[in-house]
Simulated assay, not measured.
Amino acid sequence: MKSIYSTVLTLIFFTISCNSNTTNKDNSHKEQLTQEQLETYETAYFASGCFWCVEAIFESVKGVKEVVSGYAGGKASTANYKLVSAGRTDHAEAVKVYYDAKVVSYKTLVKVFFGSHDPTTLNRQGPDAGRQYRSAIFYKNAKEKQIVETYINQLKKDKVFNGEITTEVVKYTAFYDAEGYHQDYEANNPNNPYIKGVSIPRLKRFQKKFPELLKKKAH
C-alpha cells in the first residue's frame, strides 16, 4: 500500500512540475527597459527551485527593475531548457536580478532569497527534484560572498530552519538567458496547473511574510 501511495504522489508531482505544460505565450504586454537602461543597475544571481516561481517573487520586490530567468552554475559552456531539465549540464534554473542599490540592498535580496524557499531540501524545491532545482547563490565578488556567509551564519545561530542549510555559495561564472516563453511565465500563464498550484501559493506566502518589501500596486 505504501509503495502505491508513493507512486501516486510521484505522478501528481510530475504532472504539476516546473518541467511540464510550457507554452509559447507572448509577454509583450510588459513594459520593457532597454538593455542600456538595465546596465545602469546592479545585478545579482540566485537559484531556488523553478525559475518561474523565483522570477515572480523577485519581481514583486521594490527596487527590483527586472528579473530574467535562465541558467547558471553549470559545467557546460552553454545551456538550454532541454539540456538543463534533463540534468545534462549541471546548471541550475536561476534568475538574474537587476536592482536599484539606492532602493534595495544586496543583503535585502539575500533576505528575500532565504525567506521565499526552503534551503534545507537538497536538490529539491516543492514538487521539483534534481540538481537543476538546487538552492544556490552565485556571488560576484568578495563583498557579496561575505554578506551571504554572514547571513547564513546568523540564520544558523537563530535556528531559523530545522534542517541543515544546503544552499551552495559559489562564484558567479556565467548566466544564460532562458528561452523567451519562460520569461514572465507566471504573469503570462496564470491558469497553468503548476502556476496555480505551486507558484502563486509560494508567491503569496512570501508576500504575506514580507509586506514591507513589496512594490506598491498601481491604482
Rank of each mutant, 00 (worst) to 15 (best):
Y41H: 14
D177S: 11
C18M: 06
S20H: 13
I57C: 08
E66C: 09
L155N: 08
S85R: 07
F114Q: 03
G74H: 07
T10F: 08
F46I: 09
R134D: 04
E212C: 12
Y185R: 03
Q154Y: 08
I152A: 03
T7P: 01
T22P: 05
A129H: 10
G115W: 00
A174W: 09
T166F: 03
Y81S: 06
I152V: 10
Y41N: 06
I16R: 01
V97N: 01
R131A: 14
K209F: 12
I200C: 00
T173M: 14
V95H: 00
N123I: 07
L9Y: 05
T22N: 14
E212R: 00
G197V: 00
R131S: 14
F161E: 03
L9I: 13
E164N: 09
A101D: 13
F13G: 01
G63T: 06
I4L: 15
A178H: 06
E59A: 05
T166Q: 15
L9E: 14
A178F: 07
V84K: 01
T43R: 12
Y81H: 01
Y98S: 02
A187D: 14
I57W: 04
F175A: 09
D100W: 06
F161D: 01
R124T: 07
T15A: 13
A86G: 09
V198Y: 07
P193K: 08
Y133W: 11
T108M: 04
E31D: 14
C53R: 00
A92D: 02
I4R: 03
L122R: 11
Q35C: 12
D184K: 00
I16E: 11
T108C: 04
N141S: 01
F138R: 00
F46W: 03
G163Y: 06
E144K: 04
N21T: 11
F210T: 07
G49W: 09
S48D: 06
K209W: 06
E164V: 13
K75D: 12
I147M: 09
K217H: 09
F206S: 05
I4Q: 08
E164M: 15
K215M: 13
D90V: 12
F14T: 12
S17V: 09
K25H: 11
V8Q: 06
S69F: 08
F13H: 10
F138I: 02
N192A: 04
Y151T: 05
P201E: 05
A142W: 11
V95T: 07
G126V: 04
K216Q: 11
S60E: 10
F210Y: 10
